[in-house]
């Protein structure tokens, strides 16, 4: 069974020869230390060494505006979550309509397709990252976005509709072009904090689900497995998200409320697959390799076989000792 078959089966809830493994997507600052420790020189070399089953291949550079404009020209003066973008003070939907929304015709997937063609026998998680919730946060400023859900819901709907329209058109083009080269539609939205979901279930129902469902439906139309990335505690909405078509959740932030493996197993076992679960808030940073091996074995016994072992946040920071990553990878294959 090759990696591609293994992960496909795990995400489909079928039997595989072992649990899967994904190194995650280490932060740019972490690579030098990793290569130094493992004696590797390229990302792919390290993934092969660690027997990584999963490749996240995202068309980050597909949008090529003739004047080099970004996909969403949000005009944010800073980077913090509360920093408002172009719609920070918008209360009128006409302003939303006159914004320079992205044009799918500037998308070019030829380079992307080439990368996929050379991806080898590994599971390919792809499609556009499509974080419409985050983009709404950025374009309004997170606090403004949440407030407008109450004070100017029509503005929030108008913006979300534009965001999702772009992602639907862009992903459709992507799936048309790349077809079966992509196995899973992997897209992301951080819906949770350490304690709970960011907005109430009622606001999810009105402002997130209708748009979210369009992405999952599009993925299903092209026979992709649906993998949702969300940081934080999303326990309260996981049943809904499963009903909306999610096949696997990533990264299962282990220390967030109700996101521990035992709770997930108790509530969602057999309904959905899991990718992640190895704590990055304490264990991988501060633990010993023995601690890591113990935890990987525990997660395998609790969530296996429908689990792809991976850090509970994919962007491994440079404070994670490479010996712990080595221990995590080795424990996946071991008994």
């Amino acid at each position: 069974m090759n990696s591609r078959e293994r992960i496909t089966r795990i995400l489909a809830g079928e039997k595989a020869d072992r649990c899967g493994f994904w190194l995650g997507n280490p932060h740019p600052d972490s690579w030098a230390g990793l290569h130094d420790y493992f004696g590797t020189s390229t990302e792919e070399e390290l993934r092969l060494l660690l027997k990584d089953d999963f490749r996240w291949i995202c068309p980050w550079n597909a949008y090529q505006h003739p004047e080099g404009k970004p996909v969403f020209d949000m005009q944010r003066p800073g980077k913090t979550l509360s920093e408002g973008g172009v719609f920070a003070d918008t209360i009128n939907i006409d302003e939303v309509e006159s914004f320079n929304w992205p044009q799918p015709e500037y998308l070019d997937f030829t380079g992307y397709k080439e990368t996929l063609e050379n991806a080898g026998d590994f599971y390919r998680a792809g499609g556009l990252w499509s974080p419409f919730f985050h983009e709404a946060c950025d374009i309004f400023g997170m606090e403004n976005y949440f407030l407008k859900m109450y004070t100017h819901p029509e503005v929030v709907h108008a913006v979300t509709q534009h965001l999702i329209d772009y992602y639907l058109a862009a992903n459709r083009l992507c799936f048309e072009e790349c077809g079966d080269l992509i196995d899973g539609f992997f897209f992301g939205n951080d819906f949770g904090s350490q304690h709970d979901i960011l907005v109430s279930p009622a606001l999810f129902t009105e402002f997130i689900y209708p748009y979210f469902r369009k992405l999952t439906e599009l993925g299903k139309e092209y026979h992709k497995q649906i993998i949702l990335h969300s940081c934080g505690s999303i326990f309260r909405v996981m049943n809904d998200l499963i009903a909306l078509g999610v096949d696997a959740f990533h990264p299962l932030q282990a220390k967030a409320a109700d996101m521990d493996a035992d709770t997930l197993k108790q509530h969602f076992s057999g309904k959905v697959a899991f990718i992640g679960a190895i704590d990055t808030q304490d264990l991988l940073v501060n633990g010993s390799p023995d601690d890591v091996i113990k935890e990987v074995n525990r997660i395998k016994s609790v969530l296996g076989p429908s689990v792809v072992i991976s850090p509970s946040h994919e962007a491994l920071l440079p404070d994670v000792p490479p010996r712990n990553i080595e221990a995590m990878a080795k424990a996946v294959a071991g008994k």
Binding site: E143, F146, M149, Y150, S193, H195, D196, I197, V199, S200
Partner: peptide, 13 residues
């Protein structure tokens, strides 16, 4: 866990 961030924000407003 009865209300969420938006409700705190609007109260603060």
């Amino acid at each position: 866990g009865i209300v969420f961030i938006p409700e705190i924000l609007i109260a603060a407003k």
